[in-house]
Nucleic acid binder design. Structure first.
Length: 581
RNA sequence: GCUGGGUUCGUAUAACGGUCAGUACACAAGAUUCUCAAUCUUGUAAUAUGGGUUCGAUUCCCGUACCCAGUACCA
């Protein structure tokens, strides 16, 4: 038995930025197609001329590209290397155009075919008339439904005489074509995820299929016609479409396409973290996470954050998304796009909606950060540092001729210039503490900038600032103050302890001539403090406060061996002079 | 309201008639340590509810509750 080549499509509507739920739908379609060696098609469903948003289409393309979900069909590359929706037929776009607004004539023809065969009819009711009918029904505590029960008393080709109908068709432009939903028939459907479903057609309405006003079809007609023409084998879409499935079945039947009808799979919805309703644009702003893959600036100027701009790795985002409503059936959680492709199956897609969880998203990103190569991370950290006014140079010699004054480790604290090797060294030993590239700044900014402002840490005031860290403050952007409040630094910042710290550092930076690696420094410093029977914790904490400006943070030896002798000594001196007791 | 879909630890999910109901995130405790993380170990925590069917139900059927979606000349 010869199997048809798998062809699935992602058909977004360019009414705004692509939501992460949409990205997941695209992802599942992509995985399904790739696993079967089939085609993943992108089609733009822009049949609503009123809701068109400039830039939305390009956003969709860019978002998919960032995620690595590249369509096999529907896009063409411009000479400048940019992806665009295909308008003309080509090997990569055999069914062009892929923008429904450019396929107008096709739909009209099919709408007429349905009328000719008695499956649809012209309707002349105005929007006002229908609104009034709905209001009136509502007043009686009922719901107006345009179907067998009401169509006999409304203005359409079934009630008007033929002359009047043709007159209206010619002289007016606000008529529509409606599907003539039969009465009391049972539609038996099969969903790849939900199983067998039956619906009685009497509960359904005569949906508008085509509008004379803009000569465009509605979603239902366009969808069925295009899926048929594009030889789609499986329709994988969101659960919000499940209620229209009976209509779509009826449409396939009316066209006589039942034998080639695609199979359907309705995906569970992505829910708000608190579990109430679909994840929406506003949730992100409210709960502090992006709902969009990329940053989006609306025509109104309103800005919505994106996963990309928030520092997520695309692989982490995709991996996280894949697991919202699906699992491989074993206990793997970290999977590349290739592994996902191999393991994907609609059998393992769950039926119930999935709540998005920010913590898990952070965890995924941390896992991918750990998987990154040191070179890659260092380059990314370098770019991030530039954003904080730090200059990172690959060529120390060139930098020196340009005026940089590097110390023995490749750091110039005066001019804020650091060698790439220095950055690499910092990244190498702090990477296990980071979830995002930006975290390197939160964790180790004092390896690039000398601490100046100790007051902010509650030292001089003599008491830690009374402020509970926000429990949700796990993201780098609102946890910045949290670690400094964790400990009462004034408990150890006492004159005698500071004196010991000073002496220990003096020994380390002036007399100690041994190995200046983290291990060497640690051993030397601890031996020195122990030999004098000083309180290890107190001395160390004083040193840390002077070096890091904070009562908590990286290991002393890790800091010292990187910032070097001179900087270490000067930070101690500065802190002593700056902080009174 | 009506129509359809759904319901396993706080969250995501595993177990597709027989498991001490597993895993991950989060949380808690301990270990480690110069602090904070990280790491390791351990732990808390779930089958919405009532009936069936069955030797046996998380799993199959029916009712109830709750949640979600749809109910547009939007997709």
């Amino acid at each position: 038995m010869s199997e048809k080549r798998t062809r699935v499509r992602f058909a977004p509507s360019p009414t705004g930025p692509l939501h992460m739920g949409g990205v997941r739908t695209a992802l599942y379609n992509y995985l399904y197609a790739k696993q079967r060696g089939g085609d993943f098609i992108l089609r733009i469903e822009d049949t609503d001329s009123h809701r068109f948003v400039p830039g939305a289409e390009q956003y969709i393309i860019e978002a998919l590209d960032w995620c690595g979900i590249v369509p096999d069909e529907g896009l063409v590359k411009t000479p400048e290397g940019k992806w665009e929706v295909a308008e003309e037929a080509s090997p990569q776009a055999p069914h062009a155009p892929y923008r429904q607004s450019q396929r107008k004539p096709i739909y009209r023809e099919y709408a007429e075919q349905l009328i000719k065969n008695g499956y649809a009819y012209y309707a002349f009711d105005t929007a006002e008339e229908l609104d009034a009918a709905r209001k009136e029904a509502e007043g009686r505590g009922e719901t107006f439904i345009y179907n067998h029960s009401t169509r006999g008393s409304l203005r359409n080709a079934l009630t008007l005489d033929p002359e009047e109908t043709s007159r209206l068709l010619e002289t007016t432009t606000d008529w529509t074509v409606r599907f003539k939903m039969p009465e009391n028939e049972v539609v038996a459907m099969d969903d790849l995820i939900r199983g067998h479903i039956e619906v009685n057609t009497s509960t359904l309405d005569d949906k508008v299929l085509w509008k004379r006003a803009d000569e465009l079809p509605t979603y239902h007609l366009a969808n069925i016609v295009d899926d048929h023409l594009m030889e789609i084998t499986e329709v994988i879409r969101g659960e919000e479409w499940l209620p229209s499935l009976p209509l779509h079945y009826m449409l396939y039947k009316a066209f006589g396409w039942t034998s080639s009808m695609p199979r359907f799979a309705h995906l569970p919805l992505l829910l708000k973290p608190d579990g109430k309703g679909k994840l929406s644009k506003r949730d992100g702003d409210k709960m502090g996470f992006p709902v969009f893959p990329l940053r989006w600036v609306a025509p109104t100027g309103e800005v919505s954050r994106g996963y990309r701009e928030d520092g997520y790795f695309p692989q982490a985002f995709v991996n996280m998304l894949a697991f919202l409503g699906w699992n491989p059936g074993d206990e793997r959680e970290i999977m590349s796009l290739e592994e996902l492709t191999e393991a994907f199956s609609l059998d393992h897609v769950s039926k119930s909606g999935a709540r998005f969880n920010v913590e898990k998203a952070h965890w995924y990103n941390r896992e991918y950060l750990r998987l990154s190569s040191l070179e890659d991370l260092t380059a990314k950290a370098g770019a991030m540092l530039e954003g904080h006014g730090i200059k990172v140079v690959d060529c120390p010699v060139c930098a020196i001729t340009a005026g940089a004054e590097f110390n023995e480790t490749g750091a110039d604290f005066k001019n804020h210039i650091f060698t790439a090797d220095y950055v690499g060294s910092v990244v190498g030993f702090t990477r296990e503490r980071a979830s995002f590239v930006e975290d390197f700044w939160k964790i180790a900014s004092y390896l690039f900038v000398s601490p100046k402002d100790f007051e902010a840490f509650g030292i001089k005031a003599g008491a830690a600032v009374e402020q509970k860290a926000d429990p949700r403050a796990k993201t780098w952007d609102d946890s910045a103050t949290a670690p400094f409040l964790a400990k009462d630094a004034d408990k150890f910042w006492k004159e005698e302890n500071v004196q010991m710290a000073l002496e220990a550092v003096e020994f380390l930076t002036k007399e100690y001539s041994g190995d200046f690696s983290a291990e060497g420094v640690e051993t030397a410093l601890e031996e020195y403090i122990r030999s004098r029977e000083w309180p290890m914790g107190k001395v160390m904490n004083c040193i840390r406060l002077a070096l890091a400006g904070s009562a908590s943070g990286l290991g002393i030896a890790d800091i010292v061996c990187r910032i070097g002798r001179a900087e270490t000594a000067s930070r101690l001196a500065y802190a002593k002079q700056r902080l009174s007791f």
